[in-house]
């Protein structure tokens, strides 16, 4: 009989990804509400220190799986190893934080057991004693509640930032090594070393004022309007991903999960609908202003001040007003 929640702990060379503690926190909450024990699993080689770190959390057992084929992450080796852990531990629920690594292997792991990943959730509720998960659809414009169907185990991931990892309860866990048989022939990906591209020329993380532009600007030549507003306010100019993808502004001006993360005093979002990939990069800003023609754009969910209207009328008026203020 399947029972308990197992949390996937991600790491690079034994250094635990802090985001994994968000899944620990989620498991502690769901576990206490549904009467299930929480355990955690680390896959790798020489993960003793990382396991000891995780064992300082309130979980029953930290499972470690050490194998030379797990030294560097590959989807193939992780899937094989994790699947054997699930077969040995028999959890009811596998919880993860929705990182790029989890996105890479978790759908494969679930599919190998004829299951699906309920991915990228932003919350949960308990209905009839069982967790139901909330996720965004249509890039955050709408939300849905979804429940897993079929036998245990179920595979679930939460969006980064859904839970506070630093609020996960402390405790003392036992550490238990599990052994798995990995078939080297099944590991087909050969990863090279991780690297960073040439350092970004612009560090927006320290900018106190940011004017950011999105798809609503329509054409490259209109970026000039935004530049004038930024100049008038003494702000840095930034953008959402589609603008940088089109080369309308350089990549190092991009805010969001694949760009920079910022938390300025003022973030003025112009023509940005607020897809989650953008929001994660700026939702910590102190004051957020959004200008968008669509009153239901998700950006308004996190905005302090909202202006529903035509940016091509409002931005020039705002620029004029900002220049007045300077004088």
């Amino acid at each position: 009989m399947a029972n308990g929640i197992i949390v996937f702990i991600e790491h690079v060379d034994g250094k635990v990804n802090r985001a994994s503690y968000e899944a620990v926190k989620a498991a502690q909450l769901i576990g206490s509400e549904t009467g299930q024990e929480v355990s955690a699993v680390l896959l790798g080689q020489a993960v003793g220190d990382a396991a000891a770190e995780v064992a300082s959390k309130k979980v029953k057992t930290v499972y470690t799986v050490e194998n030379e084929w797990l030294k560097k992450y590959t989807a193939d080796a992780y899937t094989q190893a994790f699947r054997q852990v699930i077969e040995q531990v028999q959890p009811a629920l596998v919880l993860m934080t929705h990182t790029y690594e989890v996105r890479d292997f978790a759908p494969k792991l679930a599919a190998s057991m004829k299951k699906i990943l309920l991915g990228d959730n932003i919350g949960y509720k308990i209905e009839d004693g069982k967790p139901v998960f909330t996720r965004q659809v249509f890039q955050g414009k709408l939300a849905v509640d979804v429940a897993p169907v079929g036998d245990d185990p179920h595979f679930v991931s939460f969006q980064i930032g859904t839970f506070r990892g630093d609020e996960s309860e402390a405790g003392q866990a036992e550490i238990k090594a599990l052994s798995v048989n990995l078939d080297a022939d099944v590991v087909r990906q050969q990863p090279e070393e991780r690297f960073k591209e040439a350092k970004a020329a612009v560090d927006l993380s320290q900018a106190p004022l940011i004017v950011s532009v999105g798809r609503g600007i329509k054409e490259m030549k209109n970026i000039e309007l935004i530049r004038k507003l930024a100049d008038a306010l003494g702000a840095e100019i930034a953008a959402s991903r589609p603008i940088c993808d089109n080369d309308w502004l350089p990549m190092d001006r991009q805010i969001g999960s694949s760009g920079q993360t910022v938390a300025p005093k003022l973030y003025l979002a112009v023509g940005i609908s607020g897809a989650i990939q953008h929001l994660v990069g700026m939702k910590g800003s102190r004051t957020i202003v959004a200008i968008n023609k669509d009153a239901e754009a998700p950006i308004f969910e996190i905005a302090d001040y909202g202006i529903v209207g035509d940016l091509f009328e409002i931005v020039p008026a705002l620029t004029a007003e900002a220049e007045k203020m300077k004088q």
């Binding site: 299951k115 699906i116 309920l118 209905e127 139901v132 965004q136 659809v137 955050g140 414009k141 709408l142 939300a143 849905v144 509640d145 979804v146 429940a147 897993p148 169907v149 079929g150 959004a290 239901e296 998700p298 308004f300 969910e301 996190i302 905005a303 302090d304 001040y305 909202g306 202006i307 529903v308």
Partner: peptide, 21 residues
């Protein structure tokens, strides 16, 4: 066969009180 069930769809709950100008 579906492996997940949609229970409901709705507008996201707001975290912040937005002042509309």
């Amino acid at each position: 066969a579906p492996r997940m069930e949609f229970r409901r769809i709705y507008l996201p709950q707001k975290n912040k009180q937005t002042q509309f100008i």
